[in-house]
Design a protein around this nucleic acid. Structure first.
Ligand code: MN
Ligand code: MN
Ligand code: MN
Ligand code: MN
Lengths: 222, 222
DNA sequence: AACATTATTTTGAATAGTCAAAGTTAATCG
DNA sequence: CGATTAACTTTGACTATTCAAAATAATGTT
C-alpha cells in the first residue's frame, strides 16, 4: 500500500511535529528533513493528501490523518525495535545501526517485528534512548533536560542521545556517555562554550562543547 | 547502485540459468518468472545491459556479466541466510519465510549478513535445503534426484524442496517430510500418478501425487 | 513457398519520485 | 503603503518501472 518513500515521509512528519511541538509541519522543514528540494516535498505531499495519509494546507503545511499517524508510529516502532535487535542480537555497533534500521524498517513484516520485540523482552527504549512506540501506538513522554541546561552539582542519568552522527556516537561509547550511565555536572562555562562533568561512580572528569552537551538529554537522579 | 528491481531480475536470471542448465536465459522465461509482461522484461533488460549487469542479445536472451553474477550470488546468499535466521533465531514458520526473505534480501547490509551467518554457524543449506552461496560466491553442486525418479525399495534422505508454496510446505512439515529426514520408496504407480513411501525409522506409510513427488529431491542413503 | 503459430520487440502511455528554474504569496521593513 | 525578501508552489523535464496493443521475427506446417 504505502511505498518506502511514503513511509519515510510519514515518519519524518511525525518526528518533526513532535520536535516542533506542533501538529502542523511546514513544508520547508519537511523538505529539509527529507533532503529534497521544496518542490519535491510539495508534489509528494499533495499525492499523500489524495491518498488520505495527511492533510495538506498550501502555505501552512501538513498534519497526519489518523491512518497516517498509525502508520508513522508503526514505522518508528519498527525502526527502534530493529535498532535494538541489531545491537542485542547481532552485536552491531551502536553507531552504525541507525543506517541499517533506515532500510530494515520498511522490509520487516509485523510478524517479524513482534518476534524481535519478544526476543528483546519488549523494550521501552532503543539504544539511543528513544522511546519505542508500543503495539498500541503509544509513546511515553518523559520530562528530560539537555545536559547543557543542568544545574551545577546535579547528578543525572543519561536518557537519550539526540543525534545520529556515527562519529559522535562512537565518541560517547568510548567515553562511557551512553544511555543509562550516570554523571555529575561540575560546571558550565558560557564564554568558552564548555561544560565540565564527571562520570559516576568512577569519577573520570571531562569537558564537552556546547553542541555536544545539547545533544545529550538526561533525567534527574535521586 | 542496483535497485531492488534490478537485484530481483539478477537473482532470477541466476536461478533460471541454473534450472535451464544454460547460461543464456530466454526473455519469455524471464518475464514469466518476474511476473511481468514480456515487453517489460525487454525494456528492463536493455537498461541492465547498458549498466553492465548482463549481456542481452535480441531474440536470444540474457547472460550475466561477472558483476551481474557476483551481485546475483550475493542477493541469493542474503536470501538464504535470512531464511535460516528467521527460522533459527526468530522461530518463524518454515512456510512463511520465503516471502519475508524476498524483501529482507535487499535491506540488509553485508555486515548484517555476515553477523547472521556467524550467529548461525555459517550454514551450507537453507531451511528448504537450497545451498547457500559462500562468501566467495561458490555454490556446491549436489547430485540429487527427484523422489519420483527413485527406484523401488531405495532408502533416501530428503535434501531439497523445490517449491515455495506455503500450503505445500506446511503439509511437509506436518508429515515430517523436511530436509534431513529419511524415507524409503515403496512403489510408483504411473497410472494413478501415485508414489508410495514410508518414513524411516517410524515406518509411517503414505502416498504422494506426481507433482508433489517431483518437488521433493533426495540423495541416496547408505 | 505460403501460411499459421509462437516468441519477442517496439511503441505509446501511465505512475512514482525527483530536480531546476520560474512564478506566487505573504510577511516584513522602510 | 509599496518594495524587498523568504517561503512556498508551479511548470517542465527526466529516470525507473510497468502495461496494452501493435509490429516483427523466427519456427513449424502444409
Ligand atoms: Mn527508512
Ligand atoms: Mn534510535
Ligand atoms: Mn526480492
Ligand atoms: Mn529457500
Amino acid at each position: 500500500m504505502a511505498s518506502i518513500t511514503i513511509e519515510n515521509y510519514l515518519k519524518q512528519i511525525l518526528l518533526l511535529s513532535d520536535e516542533l511541538a506542533n501538529e502542523r509541519v511546514p513544508m520547508g522543514k519537511l523538505a529539509e528533513r527529507m533532503q529534497v528540494v521544496p518542490g519535491t516535498a510539495t508534489t509528494m505531499v499533495k499525492a499523500m493528501d489524495r491518498s488520505g495519509w495527511l492533510n495538506y494546507i498550501p502555505r501552512e503545511g501538513v498534519s497526519l490523518t489518523e491512518e497516517g499517524n498509525q502508520l508513522a508510529l508503526k514505522v518508528l516502532r519498527k525502526h527502534r525495535v530493529v535498532e535494538m535487535f541489531l545491537v542485542e542480537a547481532l552485536k552491531l555497533d551502536w553507531s552504525e545501526i541507525h543506517q541499517e534500521a533506515e532500510a530494515l524498517e520498511h522490509a520487516i513484516s509485523d510478524k517479524v517485528l513482534d518476534r524481535m520485540d519478544e526476543y528483546l523482552g519488549r523494550p521501552a527504549y532503543d539504544p539511543h534512548g528513544d522511546p519505542i512506540p508500543t503495539r498500541l501506538g503509544e509513546i511515553k513522554a518523559r520530562k528530560l533536560q539537555a545536559l547543557s541546561e543542568c544545574q551545577k552539582g546535579q547528578t543525572v542519568r543519561i536518557a537519550q542521545i539526540k543525534q545520529q552522527d556515527a562519529r559522535f556516537l562512537q565518541f560517547l561509547d568510548r567515553t562511557g556517555l551512553t544511555p543509562g550511565s550516570t554523571i555529575r555536572v561540575l560546571d558550565h562555562d558560557a564564554t568558552a562554550d564548555l561544560h565540565q562533568l564527571e562520570t559516576v561512580p568512577d569519577g573520570r572528569k571531562m569537558h564537552l562543547g556546547g553542541k555536544a552537551a545539547e545533544s545529550i538529554w538526561v533525567s534527574p537522579k535521586g
